[in-house]
Design a binder for these strands. Structure first.
Lengths: 254, 254
DNA sequence: ATACACCTTAACGTAACGTGAAGGTCAATA
DNA sequence: TATTGACCTTCACGTTACGTTAAGGTGTAT
């Protein structure tokens, strides 16, 4: 039995364009081309197409399918296991996406209050994620893997009360430094008060405090472009001001 | 505070290309263009970008984000609820994908036998899905919604034993018709035996049998291109042969 | 003067086809 | 025999959200 594109397409439930595309990318070539240039498929091609569509149903990319169905030595099972990992990852991402979307809906609808502990848990996780994504590498470079993991663990284990405290503290750090910046004096009372807030704030994340680490973090606010951009957002020069204030506060000279 | 593309990009953690693209599609235009043609963003744009990225994180398409952040009257919450539905659908698909992949892995690894009841359940579901996708509309047109739903329900409620029986029967139908086709006589003994197998087979799916419906189904094998393609796969003309045999068997004349 | 870090537009590439457009082939029909 | 009409063919653009050169202008420090 021989098939033209349309016949084979109808048999398999796919379009003729798909068959031409499969020919184009070399995943399924017709058995022969007749004198008019028509693609003619035979029994072997039908079977191969079934295989292709089977894997396609499983969400495998055509590129991978090509390897699976053309190279007889190719380990299809291994490819599928790898594929499974990717799918699981996708699902995990999708789950967290859905959780975030639902959270947002709940908040906008006013069904959930800001102090709601469920939302709180979600926000902590999100905060960790964001921290990791934004600064993860730099912080890891500077303080080592272990310290970051411990910091995250600490954040995860915070109670809601502690979380509220640290959030408030963060706010105070920002505000006080903004006010201090206006004075222009990093050794002034306001700036030193801000540096103290800052110390208390990081103490929530770090399990041990040292003047050196504190001063090091402050220096990073200036050195790392992303930190700097963040702190300089409203007032350019804030990052340097913070570093100077903390240097004075800790007594650590560059 | 004003920003060029790179500064804003670093602040927000995105590339300059992304900012230019957002300008291009009109989702985030710079506050102004300076004398050298540089894009200059202001505070308002920073805030808008934050919004955009927030929704982007939730997996909303830029097209939808555009509506959300540009039209002030646009109902963002409603858009999110719609988005949520899409995500849930995606997850459901992903789940069934993963289940199928795992099933396939298990089978290829020989961990699961063909008679395994878990796999059986999955296959039944897959069979229904495939039937629906391939022939659903045509069958619904001909026999009505209810009949199809009942047929599916019947399939779902089959025991494994029944399932094995129906699978075997299907095999017998195919083989016997193939042999009968070789004789060329639709009224011959073999063809009539095949028609009888076919009757028993469809009885597994239908909750009532009638000669007319049986003959009607047979006619559809010829009329519907996809059925025809399926039955003609190995031997062209098989669909007509089956119809003729069943017409004789049921005694229903066209 | 030159180097270097910025900025610009333009255009291709990505995955897997859908959707025409323009033009040849084949069988049946008026 | 000429003409439909249903096939077939090869381009080639559109889809999403950018990444990635390429070619060329701008700004500033040395």
């Amino acid at each position: 039995m021989e098939y033209t594109v349309q016949k084979l397409g109808k048999l398999a439930g796919i379009s003729t364009r798909t068959l031409r595309y499969y020919d184009e990318i070399g995943i399924l070539k017709p058995a022969r081309i007749n004198s008019s240039g028509y693609r003619i498929y035979g029994k072997k091609e039908v079977d191969k197409l079934q295989q292709i569509l089977f894997f396609r149903e499983l969400g495998v990319s055509l590129d991978n399918i090509k390897n699976i169905v053309t190279a007889p030595s190719f380990d299809g099972a291994a490819a599928l296991r790898e594929h499974r990992e990717k799918l699981l990852e996708k699902r995990a991402q999708l789950n967290s996406l859905i959780a975030n979307v639902e959270k947002t809906i709940a908040v906008t609808e006013g069904r959930m209050k800001m102090s709601d502990s469920e939302k709180f848990a979600g926000f902590k996780q999100k905060m960790i994620d964001e921290n990791e994504k934004k600064y993860g590498n730099e912080i890891r470079d500077k303080f080592g893997e272990e310290a970051v993991d411990q910091s995250n663990a600490k954040l995860m284990n915070m109670t809601e009360e502690e979380y509220n405290a640290v959030t408030k503290l963060e706010q105070q750090v920002k505000e006080t430094f903004a006010l201090a910046f206006a004075t222009g004096d990093p050794s002034g009372e306001l700036a030193q008060k801000a540096a103290d807030f800052h110390k208390k704030w990081i103490t929530f994340y770090w399990n041990k405090y040292s003047k050196e680490a504190h001063a090091g973090l402050a220096q990073m606010y200036v050195d790392d472009e992303r930190f700097k951009a963040y702190y300089d957002k409203d007032q350019p020069g804030t990052a340097e001001f913070i570093r100077d204030a903390i240097r004075i506060y800790t007594g650590v000279k560059e």
